[in-house]
């Protein structure tokens, strides 16, 4: 057990095709589909937002904002350019950034959508993104050395900067970066043909 695996759910969720659900929400304004999407994502988004530092009430407000945007902009989702969960995750991350900035707590901008979803990306490059081996990722996460799991946890879930991680782990900044780099390298290998 490491910092990440202790947070993981047991087993793997059956993978629903959320891209199809989003398409139906866009095309038919289908509330039943949206309800299913809410039931899956709302508890995960809340968990994510709380781990990033939001209080429970703010987390619920922000998850509503996130899913409201998903409802209104479902037609902008393009399944060829990425998967639905990644799209929803980005919306939530950006909402939290907006909240922090508005509250003058931090100003750490996320990438603009055009950087994440460039039109010009070669088709082969786009296809790689959806090929993720979930079981392999779980195994890899569980086998990460404790320090790598810890820096990943602090960066992804807690939203700490490299300097903040260095401070809280009492290790040099360069070690934080090299540890993150190693962990990312391992996780990237779970994305089909990512090298």
């Amino acid at each position: 057990m490491n910092e990440i695996s202790s947070k993981l759910m047991d087993g793997i969720e059956t993978q629903q095709d959320w891209s199809k659900v989003l398409d139906r929400i866009a095309a038919e304004r289908d509330r039943q589909q949206f309800s299913a999407l809410y039931d899956h994502f709302a508890p995960l988004l809340k968990s994510y937002l709380i781990s990033r530092g939001a209080g429970a009430a703010i987390a619920e407000e922000l998850l509503q904002e996130t899913l409201l945007q998903v409802w209104h902009r479902a037609h902008q989702f393009n399944a060829q350019r990425g998967n639905a969960a990644t799209w929803i995750y980005r919306v939530a991350r950006n909402k939290y950034y907006d909240y922090l900035r508005h509250q003058r707590l931090a100003d750490r901008p996320p990438p603009e959508p055009e950087l994440s979803e460039p039109d010009s990306a070669p088709k082969a490059e786009r296809e790689l993104e959806s090929e993720l081996d979930g079981q392999l990722l779980n195994n890899t996460l569980q086998q990460l050395p404790s320090r790598q799991a810890q820096v990943l946890y602090m960066s992804y879930y807690q939203g700490k900067s490299h300097a903040e991680i260095a401070q809280s782990m009492e290790i040099p900044l360069g070690s934080v970066k090299s540890t993150l780099r190693l962990a990312f390298e391992k996780l990237r290998s779970c994305l089909g043909g990512a090298r």
Binding site: I4, K7, L8, M9, E13, A42, P43, L44, L45, K46, S47, Y48, I50, S51, A56, A59, E60, L63, G82, N83, A85, T86, I88, Y89, R90, A92, R93, P111, L115, S116, E117, P118, A121, E125, L128, E129, L132, G134, L137, N138, L141, L152, Y156, Y157, F184, L187, R188, L191, A194
Partner: peptide, 24 residues
């Protein structure tokens, strides 16, 4: 840009592996 997207995709995967929170 490809690496950035991979990092974001992993972010979404990690989010989906969190213990779901109780939502009111």
């Amino acid at each position: 840009r490809q690496r950035l997207r991979q990092a974001e995709q992993l972010g979404a995967e990690l989010m989906q592996r969190l213990q779901p929170a109780e939502v009111s």
